[in-house]
Design a protein around this nucleic acid. Structure first.
Length: 892
DNA sequence: ACATTCACG
DNA sequence: ACGTACGTGAATGTT
């Protein structure tokens, strides 16, 4: 039994575009409308099971409707570019689905669909029309059902003639009369002024058609009568415009829109390009199923996989080593379980060479017979081409196996090529750079609670495929780095840094548990008191840590004025509470509670959990491939956010001590590195001058912005100038600055104007960088690090503004990140060359922390700041301040 | 799994 | 008119 499904392409893609939040793939292409269209399509295909499917599109701008009424669809906003670019994508995707598409010059999608429904009626074939437009209800009949989207495009209401009767009390064809009277703002159909849906329905229930209403005008009275009288031509024309034309000369036969189901392979490929991962999973098109599975199997079957498990495989091992000796081309993949490499469980490794892929379970690598392979891993002159070698090196180190000789790291390179791409699995990197489909780890291992290693055969095959993917990605990414001028950045900075980080992390920093415990006891005592005080003031016990319960107490029970709201309820963040402080004494207690609770849970208890029993040290894990600006990040635990701003929290730093008695903690931090970078890249003479004379930059800014002398700058002026400087670095907006300073937007705007007048080079930089970003789609740091800005040309104000601020901030923050990374590479070399015992322990964005033996203290007090200041030559001097003490707190 | 809050530069 | 400061990670509560 035949069943047709006729889809109003334009209407659905428009609705989907406005209903879904912006969505882009990693190449920056907008995909939200296509995604919405696709989910709706899949749902309806499933629900309706049509034998024929057609998507109709409007063609061209002028249709026959414009002939009588040139304003038809006038006043419409131009289609946003984010949507226009999705039309060809959708058409291509429909191709992959195997779904026919029609468009016919001079006609709209409605007319094509109207014509086909007429045929369906004539032939007695059932059809469903899918649209976002209620006009189409006029096509409903015993054969024809209209599916109108609701809630964006996620659901549809089905209208049969009976359903229309029930809802409007009208026959399908009377929908045209309805439009004639009430008009349609979106199509610029005028109708009759003052007549909306209610009135129009009342008139039609009485008289049936527009013509009859006009014939019976004498039965009406007042303003309504007058309106219809004067606009009767408009009513008739509107009716005509709303009438779907059902005689479009369509040559195709029904057979040509027959739908035989989609080809999984083609659809999977199309979804992958669009990065519709959830849909791949939903249709089980993923790498663990169907075509992709076949592809993976095919790829694996083309590989020669040699498994080395025990001493009896010694011959294979020799072969591997010979292979590695003959050609330096290889691909190394080391599998470990767990995010934290300090605790990772090693699973196994695979090495791809030109002739075969060798796989060893980790147990085999640890055995005596594998000594030669372990040697190979540790030899700096034997090149390794790997994936996340930093993590590999660290994980192996804890098993006493060294990994040296990094020649190329696919993950690190992929990060430089697009630091905003958050999916850094080998499978996604491989996919993104055009290699054949690789099963995802999730497909092979499962995720979360379901994580499980598969049988050996599957596991070995997976590792082999990954090693082979690494081998094949190396030349591709090397070439990409060349093309984007990032080779130097990669080979001279990021790759050497990876090893340095692994060394710092493995070394760790000593923490006095007793010090933290002491602080913990003290905090506990204070918390107990404060909690009972809060309960007393609230008149009830509740969970202070629950924003929901706290909100109820403050804003309902105590009746305090609610300022901000979050998605889920009242906001109770510090900013809100500070404003409420004058109203009730409970507020300051809550703020104090929050502060102490944070210290206790995150810093006392959290850090204590991370101290290794054997050594009394904490080992953080720096991640080199996370931050979009090029900064490092720190995890397990984060040692880049140890309290310092408030004295109570700052005491936490007393627990961070040197690992050897008599040594010191030495810390050096860059002074105003971001503003110095700005002075350099903007070339602003005034700002450069300020740094060349090493002036207090906030005082200098206050002098220029307020037009006063140094002596006239008071603390408040300096504070405001400091906020302006922060704003400049973040990509200034008057609103942001006004929020920060608690002043009006107009005042903030004047500050900014004043600033940009005095620092005209900065103004030029801000303007130029935005222009460059719009032209190129990315911005770069001084050393050529790139960041793509997908939304820089968006029509959505918010998205575009965000991208513009990012365009201004990234070169500044990113260049500062480049500089300290360079300093780290140089410091590491300096310590080595001079054979010093001092060790670099931590990096906190603009600060480096060392432990230093007594006899090297004098030297390091000079070497560290000099190296940091000299890391990169700028047009302004760089400056680093150094301090030291018996612990990190004292090094201030 | 997601939202809120808050610690750092 | 739009409604924001840039970049992170961890703990806790809620769904």
């Amino acid at each position: 039994m035949e069943k047709w499904m006729l889809i109003d392409g334009n209407s659905i893609i428009y609705r989907a575009f406005f209903a879904l939040p912006p969505l882009t793939n990693s190449a920056g292409k907008h995909t939200n409308a296509v995604f919405g269209f696709t989910t709706m399509l899949l749902k309806l295909l499933e629900q309706e099971k049509p034998t024929h499917v057609l998507v109709a599109f409007d063609a061209g701008k002028i249709t026959f409707r414009h002939e009588g009424y040139t304003e038809y669809k006038g006043g419409r906003q131009k289609t946003p570019p984010e949507l226009s670019e999705q039309f060809p994508v959708l058409k291509e995707l429909l191709g992959a689905f195997g779904i026919s598409q029609f468009e016919l010059s001079g006609y709209e999608a409605d007319d094509i669909i109207g014509t086909l429904t007429r045929r369906a009626d004539e032939q007695g074939v059932p059809a469903v029309v899918v649209t976002g437009d209620k006009d189409m209800l006029q096509l409903a009949s015993d054969n024809i059902t209209i599916a109108v989207t609701r809630k964006g495009v996620s659901e549809v209401d089905l209208y049969s003639p009976d359903a229309i009767k029930e809802k409007y009390g009208l026959e399908p064809l009377q929908i045209i009369d309805l439009k004639g009277l009430m008009g349609d703002a979106s199509d610029n159909i005028p109708g009759v002024p003052g007549v909306g849906e209610k009135t129009a329905l009342k008139l039609l229930h009485e008289h049936g058609t527009v013509e009859n209403v006009l014939d019976n005008l004498d039965k009406l009275k007042g303003k309504l009568k007058e309106n219809i009288e004067t606009h009767k031509d408009s009513a008739m024309m509107s009716k005509k415009l709303a009438t779907i034309y059902r005689e479009v000369p369509i040559e195709q036969e029904a057979d040509e829109i027959r739908y035989g189901g989609y080809d999984s392979g083609k659809l999977a490929e199309a979804f992958r390009k669009l990065e519709f991962k959830s849909l791949i999973d939903r249709l089980e098109l993923g790498a663990d199923a169907g075509e992709a599975e076949d592809a993976a199997q095919a790829a694996a079957s083309e590989l020669t996989i040699r498994v080395i498990e025990s001493e009896s495989d010694a011959a294979e091992l020799d072969r591997l080593l010979r292979s590695l000796g003959e050609s330096e081309e290889n691909g190394l993949f080391i599998e470990s379980i767990g995010e934290n490499p300090h605790h990772a469980e090693l699973v196994g490794l695979a090495i791809a060479t030109e002739e075969a892929v060798y796989v060893l379970p980790f147990a085999a690598l640890a055995k005596p017979f594998a000594a030669k392979l372990r040697d190979w891993l540790g030899q700096p002159d034997k090149p390794k081409y790997g994936f996340d070698l930093h993590k590999n090196e660290l994980a192996l180190l804890w098993s006493g196996i060294r990994l040296e000789g990094a020649a190329f790291d696919v993950q690190l390179a992929a990060y430089l090529l697009d630091p905003t791409d958050t999916s850094q699995t080998l499978s996604s990197v491989s996919d993104k750079h055009g290699l054949p489909v690789l099963p995802t780890d999730e497909a092979v291992y499962g995720k979360g609670a379901k994580f499980k290693l598969p049988d050996e055969q599957t596991l070995y095959r997976h590792l082999a495929l990954k090693a082979e993917a690494v081998r094949r990605l190396v030349p591709v990414l090397t070439e990409e780095l060349n093309r984007t001028n990032m080779s130097k950045l990669y080979f001279e900075m990021e790759q050497p840094l990876a090893r340095i980080l692994a060394g710092m992390e493995h070394l760790g920093i000593k923490v006095e548990k007793e010090e933290l415990e002491k602080l913990g006891v003290d905090l506990e005592r204070q918390l107990t008191t404060i909690i009972s005080d809060i309960y007393k003031l609230a008149g009830t016990e509740f969970n202070i840590g629950s924003p929901k319960q706290l909100g109820e107490i403050l804003f309902e029970k105590l009746g305090l004025p609610a300022k901000k709201k979050t998605k889920t309820g009242y906001s109770t963040d510090a900013e809100v509470l500070e404003e409420l402080a004058p109203y009730h004494e409970i507020i300051s207690l809550i703020l104090h509670y929050r502060q102490l609770a944070k210290l206790q849970s995150t810093y006392v208890e959290g850090l204590l959990k991370e101290v290794r029993g054997e050594t009394g040290k904490i080992h953080t894990y720096y991640r080199q491939t996370i931050a979009a600006t090029g900064r490092l990040s720190s995890q397990f635990p984060n040692l880049q956010n140890i309290p310092i701003r408030l004295e109570e929290g700052r005491k936490i730093r007393k627990a961070f001590v040197p690992s050897k008695p008599g040594w010191s903690i030495l810390a050096a931090d860059y002074s105003q590195i971001e503003l110095r970078v700005l002075a350099h890249i903007s070339g602003d003479e005034n700002l450069k001058e300020a740094f060349i004379h090493d002036m207090d930059i906030h005082t200098k800014t206050a002098m220029d912005v307020f037009g006063v002398t140094a002596g006239q700058v008071d603390a408040n002026m300096r504070r405001q100038a400091k906020a302006v400087n922060f704003g400049i670095v973040y990509g200034i907006s008057d609103f942001g600055l006004s929020q920060n300073l608690g002043i009006t937007r107009a005042e903030a705007g004047r500050f900014i104007e004043q600033y940009l007048d005095v620092f005209q080079g900065v103004r030029r930089f801000m303007d130029d960088i935005k222009k460059d970003a719009k032209r190129d789609g990315y911005v770069t740091t001084l050393l050529g690090r790139r960041r793509y800005l997908a939304d820089i040309n968006a029509s959505n104000f918010n998205l575009r503004s965000f991208a513009e601020r990012t365009a201004m901030n990234t070169p500044i923050q990113g260049t500062a990140a480049d500089i300290i990374k360079l300093a780290m590479v140089q410091m590491d070399a300096a310590l080595r060359e001079r054979g010093l015992k001092s060790r670099m322990l931590l990096q906190v964005h603009d600060e480096l922390v060392f432990e230093v033996p007594e006899e090297e203290l004098e030297l390091m007090k000079k070497l560290v700041p000099d190296t940091m200041a000299g890391a990169l030559k700028l047009d302004v001097p760089l400056k680093a301040d150094v301090s030291y003490g018996s612990n990190w707190y004292e090094a201030k």
